[in-house]
Design a protein around this nucleic acid. Structure first.
Lengths: 159, 159
DNA sequence: TGATTTAAGTTCTATATCGTACTAATTGAT
DNA sequence: ATCAATTAGTACGATATAGAACTTAAATCA
């Protein structure tokens, strides 16, 4: 949820999350504008994860990595499967389960999306120094880890 | 869309938006966990805007402030209206339009939500120094303004 | 003034998200 | 070994988001 003119009177930490919410919305729109119709950031993110971390993951492992309900992951994987961007193989260690592998088309899709974003990222890089971006990433990573590990983020447990 | 272990090899600016996406998801869950059942961050945000900026706004002005489609705002306002947290009056300057005013119940709802978040915010404040939060807010505000004003964020125009 | 175009809001429809409940397989206890 | 409890994944239902098209009023223009 985004609003464009956060009031300076808002307590500092509210403002922090408010800005983060706005930027999330803008950046998601930005990425999705570069994706083929019907493809969402969720699809890109899963493909990205399969490459960056490792493919052959189970749907449940993926759902946990993204802290989303497994039913949502079922749905997202359905979309990826329909476009043949991932393929499914049985899990040799658990017959209830299955493993998700990225296809060549999936790799190409991800690379195309990244390439399509490159100009925008370059424009941003020209506007925001790498040092500032690095500092932001560092502090935001600390915040994310805190939220992820602290009691307060456990309010809504999943699974 | 969130994943818990961003790869250091990801280009810096991708990682920035990735962290922001994760934190947005966590913080939204955090706030919604404090709201009564059925109430969403979107409802809180609109009430917050009506107080912080000004009430008596039209739905379209609100939709633009939040950069969301007006149909979504119609839906969100419907929920607020159903709970009598806002009320609608005719727009004296335009008979097609109407103005949205927050009710006393709406003010109370917003205050309660903020009070309910206070412990979590306090815990965060104890973990992250105000100076760091201030620095984050400052840099993120710059980034938000850049995205909001730059050509690249105009990719998806709304109404 | 009357006709056309633009704008505000809603309705209708599609779909992404996510909770509940189910099926099937695994684990654990005895 | 058997049966209970747990776990992986799915099906289904509810609802938030958002695009298309519609209604009504306003603005523009001849």
């Amino acid at each position: 949820m985004a609003e464009t003119s956060p009031d300076d009177a808002l307590p500092l930490y509210f403002r922090l999350f408010n800005e983060i919410g706005i930027i999330e919305q803008l950046s998601r729109a930005l990425l999705e504008a570069q994706l083929p119709a019907g493809m969402l950031v969720s699809h890109f993110s899963v493909l990205n994860h399969l490459i960056r971390v490792k493919d052959g993951r189970t749907p449940l492992e993926l759902a946990r990595a993204f802290q989303m309900p497994k039913t949502t992951m079922t749905h997202t994987l359905g979309g990826l499967h329909k476009h043949q961007l991932v393929e499914t193989r049985p899990n040799p260690e658990d017959k209830r389960s299955k493993c998700i592998w990225i296809t060549d088309a999936g790799r190409a899709f991800r690379e195309d999306a990244i390439a399509a974003m490159a100009p925008d990222m370059g424009e941003l890089a020209a506007h925001m120094e790498a040092g500032i971006a690095q500092d932001l990433v560092s502090k935001l990573t600390d915040l994310r880890i805190y939220l992820d590990e602290s009691r307060i983020a456990k309010t809504r447990l999943r699974e």
